[in-house]
Design a protein around this nucleic acid. Structure first.
Length: 217
DNA sequence: AAACCATTCAACCGCCCGGGG
DNA sequence: TCCCCGGGCGGTTGAATGGTT
């Protein structure tokens, strides 16, 4: 196994390493990732621990194949947001940005016949400037029902599986400052005083799949 | 069975940002 | 204002796996 700087291990995680990391999080909670190596003796850097938890070990993560509904949602969101994987993943319950990114690159981009984009971070997304894209505020519960086994109601806009700040889950309407609202083209007024956000359905309808040419499987 | 090629996806890397001192 | 640190993000890599010859 390769060793990085400070003797940290790299590469695939072993079951033993997973167990150590999960034990630590159970005891101390998430955060302060760089402390884990000191506290537990785990030969992994903080960044690697964080990634392992977020992308694999977190109980809120859904493993397994993507459903057609998820594919459809990702395609629409990608059309709307571009390669903003964390934003997209935040609206696909149980999926991480890494999962979504990999799934897009290995399956969906081929389905759609999309050439791989080489966009840099600083480049604006396909349809929205960066900050504005982040402020697209969509009550996802109007689009995606929580799992039937969940006790969370459709109105429970802060439904997140493990109660953490993980990106996965159901998000409510994010608060915006007045200035941000005014600058955001997706916000509009329906009368003299009220600002209204379009629903995700509205946005996705606007960026309909009809714009795509499917090349079959 | 073996060699080769293609695909998948976990993990890493570099960069950026925000908060605290 | 600057620096450091923790954390987040998107792009890329490479080991593992599956398929083909």
């Amino acid at each position: 196994m390769e060793r990085g700087e400070k003797g940290y291990r790299k590469g695939l995680w072993t079951e033993e390493e997973d167990r150590i990391l999960m034990d630590y999080i159970r005891l101390h909670g998430k955060g302060r990732w760089n402390r884990i190596a000191k506290v537990t003796g785990l030969k992994r850097c903080g960044k690697s621990c964080r990634l392992r938890w977020i992308n694999y070990l977190s109980p809120s993560i859904k493993h397994g194949d993507f459903s057609e509904e998820e594919d459809d949602l990702i395609i629409r969101l990608h059309n709307l947001l571009g390669n903003r994987w964390s934003l997209i993943a935040g609206r696909v319950p149980g999926r991480t940005d890494n999962q979504v990114k990999n799934h897009w690159n290995t399956n969906l981009s081929k389905k759609l016949g999309v050439k791989k984009q080489r966009t840099k971070l600083k480049a604006p997304s396909q349809t929205l400037p960066t900050k504005e894209a982040e402020n697209v505020s969509v009550p996802v519960d109007t689009f995606f029902e929580p799992p039937s086994t969940s006790s969370a109601s459709a109105n429970d806009q802060t439904y997140i599986n493990d109660g953490s700040q993980d990106k996965v889950g159901y998000f409510g309407v994010e608060e915006l400052t007045v200035n941000e609202e005014r600058e955001n083209p997706f916000w509009f007024t329906n009368d003299e005083s009220n600002l209204c956000a379009p629903t995700l359905s509205d946005l996705l309808d606007q960026y309909s799949l009809d714009n795509f040419v499917w090349h079959g499987l």
